[in-house]
């Protein structure tokens, strides 16, 4: 079976600093995979390499059997690789309904229409509203984004990515800045997403990681230290040493 996402030997250096060294992994369709590692391990850099925001010095990225290594970022999105940002990257003066409708219209190739009325694109607007509703943002979708609570803005990050109908979704610390008691709720929403969608998420909260991930990748110093099931990762001495601390998980 073709992997949803495949990375082969991704390398990236800034001068003598290796931020990604020979990273290879494979995500099967529907996988819920966590990417963990200490600060500065290169996790966000890896997402930037996968999405084309950074150009790798070497390596290959394959999405659903298609080599996208040289595709510009926007084209990768159109082919089904979407992301969210660690620090909110939204449209402050658009309301969530407009922002999500915009993402839907972009996916449908309708944003070139400069004489039609936006409101007349009822299918796109309704689709955007349904996405917002599924993320429990329907009640606030008419307010400007900058007026939303932080947790709602984190959910809007996901809504915008979902509006592109991704096959693979890369979530860069989706619960960053969200109080610990709310992050479980946020991950429940994430866990409820379609099983056809492949997820790779960066997360520091190990409780959340072990609860929601079916597979874990561990990065240290720009390299992939190992990958395995939550049980394998929890019992690995190297992981305990570099990341979890001597006490380990649980």
């Amino acid at each position: 079976m073709t992997a949803a996402l495949l990375a082969k030997g991704l390398d990236k250096r800034f001068g003598s600093l290796v931020v990604a060294g020979g990273i290879s992994f494979e995500l099967p369709v529907g996988e819920r995979c966590a990417l963990i590692g200490p600060n500065g391990a290169g996790k966000t850099t890896l997402i930037n390499l996968l999405t084309g925001m950074l150009t790798p010095d070497a390596g290959e990225i394959v999405l659903n059997g298609e080599d996208i290594s040289r595709a510009p970022p926007a084209r990768r999105v159109r082919k089904g690789l979407a992301r969210t940002f660690q620090i909110n990257s939204l449209f402050p003066k658009l309301n969530p309904l407009e922002a999500t409708t915009l993402a839907v219209c972009e996916r449908r190739g309708e944003t070139g229409d400069f004489l039609g009325r936006l409101a007349a694109r009822r299918d796109a607007v309704d689709e955007a509203y349904d996405i917002l509703k599924s993320l429990r943002l329907d009640g606030v979708c008419r307010r400007e984004t900058r007026e939303l609570a932080y947790g709602q803005q984190r959910l809007l990050e996901i809504a915008l990515a979902l509006a592109t109908q991704p096959k693979v979704l890369l979530l860069d610390e989706p619960a960053a800045g969200v109080p610990k008691e709310d992050s479980g709720e946020l991950f429940q929403v994430i866990d409820g997403l379609s099983r056809q969608l492949t997820l790779l998420f960066i997360e520091h909260d190990m409780d959340v990681v072990f609860r929601f991930a079916s597979r874990i990748l561990v990065m240290v110093g720009g390299r992939l230290l190992l990958e395995g099931t939550p049980a394998e990762i929890a019992n690995d001495a190297r992981v305990r040493e570099v990341y979890l601390g001597s006490a380990g998980h649980g």
Binding site: F91, P92, D113, F114, R121
Partner: peptide
């Protein structure tokens, strides 16, 4: 129009 919304999107956050 949808195009106008896209322009506002670029003004607000071209990276996004």
């Amino acid at each position: 129009s949808p195009f106008g919304l896209a322009l506002r999107g670029i003004r607000e956050n071209s990276t996004r």
